[in-house]
Amino acid sequence: MIRFHGVAKRYPGGNDALRGISFEVTQGEMVFVTGPSGAGKSTLLRLIPLLERPTRGSVIVNDVNLSTLTRRRIPYLRRSIGMIFQDHRLLPDRSVFDNVALPLVIAGFEHKETQRRVRAALDKVGLLERERSDPATLSGGEQQRVGIARAVVSRPPILLADEPTGNLDPALSEEIMRLFEQFNRVGVTLIIASHDHALVERLGYRRVHLTDGALA
């Protein structure tokens, strides 16, 4: 499903975020990327939806070599990937419902179908009754769940989460991970970056450990 082949990423200024990484995530897998902050976890995730382009090597998603993808095709790649961020990345001036509906609006879904899917996604994360709320009035855990609802509402085959539990207490982190497990059970491929080793170890999924831009 996702293949990294000798991938290196050097930022302008000579900072090497990744130094020749190769690994593969098969369809329906749930993989954790671990390592200390600055080890290149975020960069690795960002290469998959082409938020960055690698300096060297190739990333292959769904049998498509991303280096062959033109700028015009990038939006369609991103629509097949749900992304979850530590800082949620919600639109503060729109309701929870509108935030979650955004990917469907972008993809041009019809109004009724949008409503149905948004409600289903919000129900899944347990926030159905907050659909009219302002994101700012929600707690950190709730905001993260809105972010997750937005990532899954268009039912993408791949979910990427960058430190999804970074700001959450252990109980809430556990809750978020349970949600991810549920998605994984219906066939979604997940890659989750986390530095919470204890939690990751307890869950017992496959781990890719990064130190200083290389696989350990």
Binding site: L51, R72, P75, L77, R78, R89, L90, I106
Partner: peptide, 16 residues
């Protein structure tokens, strides 16, 4: 700006 970034992040085309 942040709204535009988010739009592009979740697959908004340039036209959109």
């Amino acid at each position: 700006r942040s709204e535009i970034e988010i739009m592009k992040l979740i697959g908004g085309t340039d036209a959109f």
